[in-house]
Amino acid sequence: MTTQEALFQYTLRIADTNLILAQRISEWTGHGPFLEEDLALTNIALDITGVAKSLLEYAASIENKGRSADELAYFRNDRQFYNAQITELPNGDYARTIVRQAIVDCFDYYFYTELAKSKDETLMGIAQKSIKEVTYHLRHTSSWVERFGDGTEESHNRAQQALNELWQYTGELFEMTEVDEILIKEGIAVDLNKVKEKWENHMSELLEKSTLAKPENVFMQTGSRKGIHTEHLAFILAEMQALPRMYPDAKW
């Protein structure tokens, strides 16, 4: 694998994680638990769709085969997507949506903090911009995790159940492959072991504050680094990509 190929895949991985999560949480727009929160979650969806767009544009330029960012988003099949599986899971109830978001926000926070030191200037720039957004996302979702954890018995149970179900998908976030190896040597990619430790500590603190139990000894799911997904992704893409694929010669 060349550095260029590695960089292409690495960029797609970050882009897809943002794109698919945005796709999921934007399902809440117009259906939130109350109006103010509806708008707040939509803001997060907007931010991360924006990040996905910048990254896909960069991926397209790395690939340099004349494919645009939109073509990467709308004309790849599920086996060519590298988003973490946790992002493609159905939203479930609001506790599940928030817990998942907090898990990913927390990961992103430490990940972008490291990526902001990348020797790749484009990734560095995108990371620097994203840190500000993600700092706010994490603050927002963390405060909701706390409210659910220490709110009513029902909200506590819902949040705990969400954690128990989602935890098996957190291992994937820190998996490193040949792609990472090549790019770490070049000073481009992030050593995810470093991120993992910070993420673990942060999550432990947040869950404790929220009176929630951190799941232990969980068997971790894997696959997305190889483009292997849950059954949900193909449905997401079928919906997302329908129009451009129906009219492949059209411009929108």
Partner: peptide, 19 residues
Amino acid sequence: WITRAPSLRAKVVLLAKVQ
């Protein structure tokens, strides 16, 4: 139509508008 917007640009614009 948010989840089916046919381009990334159209998607952010529609999200912002509905919001």
